[in-house]
Amino acid sequence: MAIQSDTKPLLEVKNLRIEFPTRRGVLTAVDDISFDIMPGEVLGVVGESGAGKSLTGAAVIGLLEPPGRIAAGSISLEGQRIDNLPYEKMRQIRGRKIGAIFQDPLTSLNPLYSIGRQLVETIQTHTDMSESQARRRAVELLADVGIPAPERRVDQYPHQFSGGMRQRVVIALALAVNPKLVIADEPTTALDVSIQAQILDLIRKLCKERNVGVIIITHDMGVIAETADRVAVMYAGRIAEIGPVRDVIKHAKHPYTHGLMGSIPTIGHDTEKLTQIDGSMPRLTDIPRGCAFNPRCPKAFDKCFVDRPELIQVEQTRAACWLYEKEAVHG
């Protein structure tokens, strides 16, 4: 709640478009999305598979895989543009300013190196610390993320840790050199349900302590409810609704968000997740004219099949839906 409107945003994404040139033409996977993150703020990004969540995260950290490319828009970190930096400049920002947490802790760590070595290597890449300083820092980090007996564990190999412990190591790696922003792409999806909440708490706690902004990507509204300050709901490459978590959950504006809220699973009791709404998200090759959600929308009307809605401010949140056009105009 310490977010002040007068502080400068940590991250600004403006009109970002991500395209894949293919033989059958250019696919637009992320289409004109904009959002900000304040220092220390946790932004949840939620949406069905293929909505463009991971691509957005990859674009921010500069690791879009070719042929995917940023076709338009800008990404700025602390006021500096980072979407057009040369590789070497961007490499220095990765890990140093932006950390990443991946989905599967079992495959995120190199099996052939001890976790200590992987931590030390990350620290030494971005700082002038000596080997022994970096090692001491590594042990501290392991303690911070709640790994018992860190002095002993630091020399062990990834396969000697459980899934949950490995994800803690991954978090330690992401935070190793005090980044300003962490991108966590489905950080708990691959974990046993019994430890998902612990890991989410840990991410939230550490980032709040260090005033680190977080983008947490998930399918799971439960995860958002638990961790995020604000949420962006993505649908077919666009943001359908964005606003404070409380408002979006209690008073969802966009019919799609409504559908998502049909049942907020408490963490660990989800199986259906986002399949509450009939039908499925259109593929990139056949996104309908007008509002992309119109085939599934119970409230669709004429205009929805013709024009594409932009985000419209509705109370605390903004929703891309024609239902609110009048309110915006008259209210």
């Binding site: 690791l63 490499r91 995120s108 190199n110 890449t125």
Partner: peptide, 12 residues
Amino acid sequence: DYIKFARARGLS
């Protein structure tokens, strides 16, 4: 993934 993660950590 561990190569992608190594890149995400900013290794050369």
